[in-house]
Amino acid sequence: MKMAVISEHLGLSWAELARELQFSVEDINRIRVENPNSLLEQSVALLNLWVIREGQNANMENLYTALQSIDRGEIVNMLE
């Protein structure tokens, strides 16, 4: 549920979040190519990849820290 809210509000910031979460330029470009027409779909794809990559370590605290690092703390505030 929280992931959906984050995806809805990320907009163009999804790529900046991807870099903050240590995704490569290739990963970011692949997300763009696979989801060409929708920032929402790109955001969802990023968060899904992050959960798959991090497994047990994919917790909201880590995601909140990354969001705050890219000056998107207002998204965190909405969810708390």
Rank of each mutant, 00 (worst) to 15 (best):
H9E: 10
V33H: 12
D71E: 14
D71V: 01
G55V: 01
L12A: 15
N62T: 15
L63N: 02
A4P: 03
A4S: 07
V5D: 03
V51T: 14
W50Y: 13
N57C: 09
E16Y: 06
P36A: 13
E20Q: 14
T65Q: 13
L46K: 02
L46E: 00
E54M: 07
E8M: 05
E16D: 14
K2M: 10
V25H: 15
E41F: 07
N37W: 06
Q22K: 13
R32E: 14
G11R: 05
Q42W: 02
T65I: 08
S7W: 03
Q68S: 09
T65K: 12
I28F: 02
F23W: 00
L79K: 05
E61A: 15
L12R: 12
E20L: 05
N57Y: 15
D27E: 11
E61R: 06
V33E: 13
S13D: 15
R72Q: 07
T65V: 10
E8W: 02
L10V: 08
N48V: 05
S38C: 11
V5I: 06
N37I: 08
L49N: 07
L10I: 09
N37R: 09
A4M: 05
I75H: 03
M60F: 15
L63D: 02
L21G: 00
L40D: 07
L39C: 14
I31K: 00
S24V: 02
R30H: 11
L17D: 00
E54D: 07
V51L: 14
G11A: 05
L49S: 14
G73Y: 06
V5C: 09
R30L: 08
L12D: 10
P36H: 07
G55H: 06
S69W: 07
I31M: 04
E41V: 05
N48E: 05
I70W: 00
I28W: 02
F23I: 13
A18K: 01
E16F: 08
K2P: 03
L12M: 08
H9T: 07
N48K: 15
N59I: 06
V76S: 05
L40S: 09
I31C: 01
L39S: 09
N48W: 01
L39Q: 14
N62Q: 10
H9K: 11
D27Q: 11
S24Q: 09
N62V: 14
S7K: 02
L63F: 03
N37P: 00
M78S: 10
W50K: 03
E20D: 04
V5P: 04
S7H: 01
E74G: 06
A58Y: 12
N57L: 11
Q68K: 15
A18R: 03
N35L: 04
S38G: 10
V5R: 04
V44K: 15
Q68R: 12
N35C: 06
E34K: 04
V25L: 11
I31P: 03
S43K: 03
G55E: 07
E8S: 09
V33R: 14
L49M: 14
W14E: 02
Q42S: 06
R72K: 10
E74N: 05
V33N: 11
R53K: 09
N77M: 10
S43N: 11
V51S: 15
N59D: 15
V51R: 14
P36R: 09
